[in-house]
Simulated scan of single mutants.
Amino acid sequence: MAVPHIVDAVFCGEYKCRKQCFFCVREVVAAKGESLLSAGELARIENAAARIGKPINVVGSRASGTAKATSDWDYVIEGLTNKQWKQIKNSLPGAPSRIDKLPRMIDIFKGPVDPTKPFITIFPK
């Protein structure tokens, strides 16, 4: 099975962030033309990245375009400390829901991103 590659992204028009790293991504589109992450999910991840001052990488099925509604969220955040994790753990997509009483569906990896597998990097704004 071929892995979809990111071929397009829609940006918010803010061409340089304070750190001059990357555009503010508003939508990520796979080769099939499907949205991999919603605008709301991207905003939540971007806000979390800003809170800790580090890029957050989405990996696994969410990055490859194979996620189901019940799929967990896999993140790679290099150099993440326990203090930083406490700042963002309830705001990332996959956090537990008090309304729906859903459990946490997040896996965090602290190592570098595997460049041979699909990933989406969201930089702090």
Rank of each mutant, 00 (worst) to 15 (best):
M1P: 04
M1Y: 07
A2Y: 12
H5Y: 12
I6M: 02
V7M: 10
D8V: 15
V10W: 09
F11Q: 15
F11N: 12
F11Y: 14
F11G: 15
F11P: 08
F11R: 15
C12E: 09
C12T: 07
G13T: 06
G13V: 08
G13L: 05
E14T: 14
E14K: 13
E14L: 10
C17F: 04
C17K: 09
K19Y: 05
K19T: 04
Q20Y: 13
Q20K: 11
C21M: 12
F22E: 08
F23E: 01
F23P: 00
F23N: 02
C24K: 12
V25Q: 01
V25S: 00
E27K: 13
V28Y: 02
V29S: 05
V29I: 15
V29Y: 08
V29D: 01
A30Q: 04
A31D: 07
A31I: 14
K32H: 06
K32C: 10
K32Q: 03
G33Q: 12
E34G: 14
E34W: 12
E34N: 14
S35F: 15
S35H: 14
L36E: 02
L36P: 05
S38N: 05
S38M: 09
S38V: 09
A39W: 05
G40W: 11
I45T: 07
I45F: 07
I45D: 00
A48S: 13
A49W: 09
A50R: 09
A50G: 03
R51P: 01
R51H: 10
G53V: 14
G53N: 11
G53P: 10
G53M: 15
K54R: 12
P55H: 08
I56L: 13
I56N: 00
I56C: 08
N57A: 10
N57K: 06
N57R: 10
V59H: 00
S61W: 01
S61F: 02
S61M: 04
A63L: 06
T66H: 00
K68H: 15
K68F: 09
A69F: 04
S71C: 06
S71A: 10
W73H: 01
Y75M: 06
V76L: 04
I77W: 00
E78F: 10
E78K: 14
G79S: 13
T81P: 05
N82L: 08
N82W: 15
K83C: 02
K83A: 09
Q84G: 02
Q84V: 11
W85F: 04
W85T: 07
K86P: 00
K86F: 01
K89I: 12
K89M: 03
N90T: 13
S91M: 12
G94F: 02
G94V: 06
P96S: 10
P96M: 07
R98N: 05
R98V: 04
I99A: 08
D100T: 11
L102I: 03
L102S: 08
L102E: 07
L102K: 14
P103R: 01
M105R: 08
D107K: 14
D107C: 11
D107H: 15
K110C: 11
K110G: 03
G111P: 06
G111D: 10
G111W: 07
P112A: 01
P112F: 10
K117C: 01
K117D: 00
P118S: 06
P118K: 02
F119V: 11
I120V: 11
I120W: 01
F123T: 12
F123W: 13
F123I: 11
P124N: 01
K125S: 02
K125C: 01
